[in-house]
């Protein structure tokens, strides 16, 4: 693939660390930048819509991007119109985003809406671009459990990356400090729906209890006092290797991992 011919935009947002909640470069967005760097090298355009003053944005610059374009917006504004206009005018072949923001609503809708607005095809969970030729790209889509599906998609297209995409490179302090922030003011469209919604700290979800539909008191008592399944495994001691292997295989087949 010719790196110079390909123009890629990676959309980035400000993330939040899962345990401390402090701002950082978002994990999936960093992967989008990494994939973009691998595909387009210096032709990668990194775009952010939001607060240009956020220091965490420099985390992306630290990955070796010279410049980060910011469409300046106050918090709570709808990033979609500005991004769509910018991308339409940029003439790129590929736009990469993370699957879901780490702050705010995090509905993961942005890439879908963007693709709808641009009229571009959308590849969800792209893991790798295998080849690009004749206005089409052959890509690998990540499925659960490390599985992959090969897709052919016509350019230009939008792709989201999730945790199956290449691991982002380390963000280095020097380039992060030197990198430029190219800030552009755009019209602000306030997201009315989200403005009315209320964010609260996540409540831990209760583990689903086994529902006991017992008709008699004895059944309920039995279910309540029964040992939780899985507690205390079966130990095969003093069996032959063959018996042991057969027992293991039986479990593996039951679990469906040996086919």
């Amino acid at each position: 693939m010719d790196k110079s011919a390909l123009h890629v935009i990676s959309l980035v947002s400000v993330g939040a660390h899962p345990t401390s909640g402090r701002p950082r470069r978002a994990e999936q967005d960093a992967r989008a930048v990494e994939l973009g760097l691998q595909l387009a090298g210096d032709n990668l355009h990194v775009l952010h819509a939001g607060d240009a003053e956020e220091p965490a944005l420099r985390g992306y610059l630290g990955m070796g991007v010279d410049e980060l374009h910011v469409l300046a917006q106050p918090p709570g504004a709808d990033a979609l119109p500005g991004l769509a206009d910018y991308i339409r005018e940029s003439g790129v072949q590929l736009v990469l985003t993370g699957s879901q923001a780490e702050t705010g609503e995090g509905s993961g809708m942005l890439p879908y809406l963007l693709a709808e607005k641009l009229g571009w095809p959308l590849v969800v969970g792209m893991a790798e671009v295998e080849s690009m030729s004749n206005g089409t790209a052959q890509v690998l889509q990540a499925l659960p459990r490390g599985q992959r599906r090969r897709l052919k998609v016509r350019l230009p297209f939008l792709a989201t990356v999730d945790n199956s995409a290449p691991k982002p490179r380390q963000s280095a302090y020097g380039p992060a400090q030197r990198g430029l922030l190219d800030v552009e003011e755009i019209d602000v469209v306030i997201d009315e729906v989200f403005a009315g919604a209320e964010l609260t700290p996540a409540k831990p979800r209760p583990k689903r209890l086994k529902v006991i539909k017992a008709k008699s008191g004895a059944d309920r008592m039995k279910a309540a006092t029964a040992k939780a399944s899985g507690g205390g495994g079966q130990v095969l001691k003093g069996v032959t290797a063959q018996e042991g292997a057969a027992a293991i295989l039986k479990l593996l087949v039951e679990e469906g991992v040996v086919r």
Binding site: L236, T240, A245, L251, V253
Partner: peptide, 24 residues
């Protein structure tokens, strides 16, 4: 921790396991 444990020499059990999988 295990749900199923087999106590024994791992080499023999692994050999047997390969055989059992093949047969299966």
């Amino acid at each position: 921790r295990a749900d199923l444990s087999v106590i024994g020499e791992s080499a023999a059990i692994l050999e047997a396991l390969i055989e059992a999988v093949d047969t299966y």
